[in-house]
């Protein structure tokens, strides 16, 4: 492996890294927002809306991100909505992640015993207060492991962005291989940057999980 080549590749990877990170995290924020709304509608069994949320979750959990991206990237302009590759990436991660986040949160909400709401309401809290002050915070703590797993999964899923010509890490690696044939160096840098992107998330996730578990179960 040629170190000079690695060094010369560095700026392009760094740029791609920042782009991947930006789109990935914006997509994850969007996914959290979508997931919360979707989980709430299902938890409260809102008529019609909960069905829509259920259908959404099934569709987006059971199709690959690549297919979803193609749909958004090539489909939206046909419907008259021009959309940049970057926005498409954010929306893609947001929609895919939203379905996963929704399920994580919904199962956590259902895991909080009904008696917790009863005891809150017996203290004079309204339905809304019981949910907002007791059920939802408890569910959030319970959902930490699933949410952390989703975040890591979604950051890795960004690797299909190259298909809609976003210059993410994967695109950069393929591009450099195509240009210079330094396959080993290009792939090595790819791995290194993914590790740089994900190890901190994974480590922070473990800390968060431990804290959450400690709070609820004292382990």
């Amino acid at each position: 492996m040629n170190v000079d080549v690695l060094i010369s590749y560095f700026p392009r990877y760094a740029e791609a890294f920042l782009l991947t990170l930006r789109i990935g995290w914006l997509g994850i924020l969007l996914s959290a927002a979508i997931g919360i709304v979707s989980a709430f509608t299902m938890y409260f069994k809102l008529p019609v809306l909960s069905r829509i949320a259920g259908a959404y979750v099934e569709i987006f959990r059971n199709t690959p991100l690549l297919v979803q991206l193609f749909f958004v990237y090539f489909g939206m302009p046909k419907l008259g909505f021009a959309i940049s590759a970057e926005t498409c990436g954010i929306v893609g991660i947001g929609l895919l992640g939203g379905s996963y986040m929704s399920e994580a949160l919904r199962s956590s909400l259902n895991a909080v015993p009904a008696s917790q709401a009863e005891s809150a309401e017996a203290l004079g809290m309204t339905h809304f207060q019981a949910f907002w002050l007791v059920i939802f915070p408890e569910a959030l703590v319970l959902s930490v492991p699933a949410v952390v797993a989703n975040v890591i999964f979604l950051l890795k899923e960004t690797s299909v962005f190259s298909a809609i010509s976003l210059m993410d890490l994967m695109f950069t690696a393929k591009d450099l291989i195509g240009l210079y044939y330094d396959t080993t160096e290009a792939l090595f840098m790819l791995v290194v940057f993914y590790i740089i992107m994900l190890v901190p998330v994974s480590a922070a996730g473990s800390v968060l999980e431990r804290k959450a578990r400690h709070k609820m179960f004292g382990e």
């Binding site: 008696s115 917790q116 009863e118 809150a120 007791v134 915070p137 408890e138 703590v141 709070k215 609820m216």
Partner: peptide, 8 residues
């Protein structure tokens, strides 16, 4: 019977 304190 089961206390129902808020665990968080």
């Amino acid at each position: 019977q089961s206390y129902e304190l808020f665990p968080h």
